[in-house]
Structure formats: C-alpha cells, structure tokens
C-alpha cells in the first residue's frame, strides 16, 4: 500500500497580461520557463541555422542559467538565439537577465523573450538568482493560494486503498468507446491533517 500525503487541487491559474515594460518580476517569472543571465553578442543574427535572422533576433551568450526545464541542455557559455519582444530593444554588449519561453530546440536553443531586466552592469549573479528565486516563490505561493481557495478539500493524509471508481453520476449522452476514455480510479484517504473541508480522522474518497 502506498503511503503518501495528498493535496487536492482543482484549478488552474492565469494572470492578466500587461505591457512587457510594466511587468513585475513575478509576472515575468510566471510567464517564463527559461531564465538566464546573458550578454548580447550579435544583433539581427542567429546562433543556429534553424532560425531565420531578423531585426528581432539577437544572439546572447549565456553567463548563468537561473531556471530551465530539466530536459533542456543549456549551460553557461552556450549561445542562444533570442527573438526579442520588439526590434531594437537590445544592443550588443548589454548584459541582462532574460525571461523567455522555449521556441525551437535543435542543435541549439532558440527562445522568445518575455522580458529582460538590464539591472546593474555587470549583473551580480547572486543578486539576480536570489531575485528570481524570490519571484518564483511569490508565483508559487499565489498559485497554491488560488488552488486552496477553489479546492473543495485540502488534506494531508494516507492513501489506504486505490480502486476502480464507482461514479454515481449518470452519463448525459450515450456511452461511447474511445481510447481517450478516462480510467477513473478512486483513492481512499485517511485524513491526518484537515487543512480545509475535512478533519483529522475522517476517511475521504477521491476519484481521479
């Protein structure tokens, strides 16, 4: 039997958009999946042949990776192609913290700029890392708070059993068979700490 804590979430979040220049660091972090300190080495150029050069593309040498998805191979010293949010916003030699999303992955990485923070020059790596980490914590806390607010129940507990679900709600349309049908299971959870909507000692059933 698996023993684990269960946190039950039921919502997804989105923040309203804002002009890049006015975005808070937290908003930049929230929209980004690759964040790094880098130095612009070429303007109107690309680092990999898979991307056509334009007046919005710049080549940035990565000085320090602050955040990236685990599958992405990106280390200090790599050259990244950045599609800037607007043409002419970056000049060769500028060092900044780049907030980006992954765009093209091939022999190298090309990213799309969400925003950048020039900050001090040179950027103090420790300061930038701490600032991004702090902003990420703010984003994560906001996500968690929203999840908790919308969830019917939040508990820490022990999964006592997992079994095929016995859903009581009748389907509203004729049954159809696809390989996309959910294989509903339900977990029997012994609540050890009732954070919302349940109390310690209760047993709850969670379909999934």
């Amino acid at each position: 039997m698996h023993i684990r804590s269960a946190m039950l979430f039921a919502v997804a979040l989105s923040f309203p958009g804002a002009a890049v220049a006015q975005m808070s660091r937290a908003a930049l972090v929230k929209q980004s999946d690759i964040i790094f300190i880098g130095t612009v080495t070429q303007v109107g150029a690309v680092a990999v042949p898979e991307v056509p050069p334009s007046d919005r593309t710049v080549v940035v040498r990565v000085d320090q990776v602050l955040e990236k998805p685990a599958p992405v191979a990106l280390t200090a010293g790599d050259s990244v192609t950045v599609e800037t949010a607007r043409a002419g916003s970056l000049k060769a030699g500028i060092q900044a913290t780049f907030y980006t999303t992954g765009w093209i992955f091939g022999r190298g990485v090309a990213v799309r700029e969400v925003g950048h923070e020039p900050g001090q020059s040179p950027v103090v790596t420790a300061d930038a890392r701490e600032a991004v980490a702090r902003a990420r914590a703010v984003v994560n806390d906001a996500d968690l708070k929203a999840h908790i607010q919308r969830a019917a129940m939040v508990v820490a507990g022990r999964v006592e059993q997992v079994r095929p679900a016995e859903l009581t709600a009748a389907p509203t349309r004729p049954r159809r068979i696809t390989e996309h049908d959910p294989d509903w299971q339900e977990a029997i959870i012994q609540v050890e700490d009732g954070i919302k909507g349940a109390q310690a000692g209760e047993q709850v059933v969670v379909p999934r």
Binding site: A152, V204, V205, P207
Partner: peptide, 13 residues
C-alpha cells in the same frame, strides 16, 4: 468514522 465522496476535476534473425 465517516466516508465521504468528493468529485475533484482533474485534467487529467
């Protein structure tokens, strides 16, 4: 001990 059912939408040679 009470057993309750809650429905939680989860995108789930």
């Amino acid at each position: 001990m009470r057993a309750r059912v809650i429905t939680v939408g989860v995108a789930l040679c």
